[in-house]
């Protein structure tokens, strides 16, 4: 296998700090946690659930009767976590556990700072230094009994916690298809490689793992020129989170000469209000030393000054 045949991959990290409004029941729970107290909710069958569910797990009815439970309890089940993953409560080996807090009837899932445990072990809450993060106000549990004096001292009235922030950061390996990889490697050499579908004979750029209308891989390679027309476009004036091109910019569908499908790219080189449907454009490549396996090698497309393509010639590409 040549290196050329291995599809291209690159990391794709997605992250966002989600803001979770809690609603009345969970607000009381989170507010109590910030005050170093734990609340459960009494269900229709009399059981006290911790954390308090908003809705009864049996009947679905809204639960509003919250009762305080202890900050120590008994391990009812546990599982070792010898190699903690990102975001988990502890960074060294610990155990996950179901902890039945004294006064509760159903257990809470959390971490216990111990490499091994036994069912029936007594554990108590270790409070986080930072408050106002809901369940994460409990840093973890640790073996031992509640220490009444210390806990009394720590308990305090806290400001209402009606919102928590939950960071979600995930890492993926993004992989291009073999067809797209050939095209990307072509870009790294300054070439635009499309492929023709054997069934419908349309030229696709980027080429597809499967022709969207025929469901078969595109096959025959077709090298395309770096010029074509703008079929249609918009002017992006709006800034947004994660944006990588500063507005305003023209996002345009570029139909290369000889291609049967347009792709989105940037048009510069004239004021946005002079970009037209049918306008002839050519690629403005970045300096060669900046090229990689990406369409970003073409910095933008710019007007060639040739006469516009007649509408009829591209109407079927809209």
């Amino acid at each position: 296998m040549t290196v050329d045949q291995v599809p291209l991959s690159a990391p794709l990290d997605i992250g966002f700090d989600y803001t979770r409004s809690l609603g009345p029941t969970l607000t009381r729970f989170a507010t109590a946690l910030a005050g170093r107290r734990v609340l459960g909710a009494r269900g229709g069958d009399g059981r006290v659930h911790v954390p308090p569910p908003e809705y009864d797990p049996v009947t679905g009815k809204a639960l509003t009767e919250l009762v305080e439970v202890a900050s120590s309890g008994t391990v009812t089940s546990w599982c070792a976590q010898p190699e903690p993953l990102a975001g988990q409560p502890l960074e060294h080996p610990f155990c996950w556990a179901f902890v039945l807090l004294d006064g509760a009837d159903t257990p809470l899932l959390h971490a216990v700072d111990a490499p091994v445990l036994r069912t029936g072990a007594r554990v108590r809450i270790r409070w986080a230094v930072e408050r106002g993060n809901g369940i994460r106000d409990i840093a973890c549990f640790e073996p031992g009994e509640e220490e009444p004096a210390a806990q009394d001292g720590a308990a305090a009235e806290a400001d209402e916690v009606a919102m928590i922030t939950t960071p979600v950061h995930l890492s993926y390996m993004h992989t291009a298809s073999p067809e797209e990889s050939r095209y990307l490697r072509g870009l790294a050499e300054g070439r635009l490689l499309g492929q023709r579908c054997p069934a419908c004979e349309k030229v696709y750029i980027p080429p597809r793992g499967a022709c969207p209308t025929d469901g078969v891989p595109t096959e025959t390679e077709v090298e395309l020129p770096d010029r074509g027309i703008v079929t249609t476009f918009c002017v992006v004036n709006v800034p947004f989170l994660g944006q990588r091109i500063p507005p305003p910019y023209v996002a345009a569908y570029i139909l290369l000469d000889g291609a049967d499908i347009a792709f989105l790219h940037l048009v510069l080189g004239c004021p946005p209000d002079q970009v037209r449907m049918g306008m002839r454009v050519e690629a403005a490549w970045r300096p060669r030393e900046q090229w990689g396996t990406t369409l970003e090698n073409i910095d933008h497309f710019r007007p060639t000054g040739e006469p516009d393509a007649p509408y009829e010639t591209y109407a079927r590409h809209l």
């Binding site: 291209l8 690159a10 990391p11 794709l12 997605i14 966002f16 989600y18 803001t19 979770r20 409004s21 993004h174 291009a176 797209e180 990307l184 992006v236 947004f240 989170l241 994660g242 944006q243 990588r244 091109i245 910019y249 996002a251 792709f263 989105l264 790219h265 940037l266 396996t293 990406t294 369409l295 970003e296 073409i298």
Partner: peptide
């Protein structure tokens, strides 16, 4: 809870982030 513009505009590697 988040931002739909962000979620819909995540540009994967190799693509033009327009």
């Amino acid at each position: 809870e988040s931002n739909a513009m962000w979620a819909l505009s995540i540009s994967p590697p190799f693509h033009m982030p327009v």
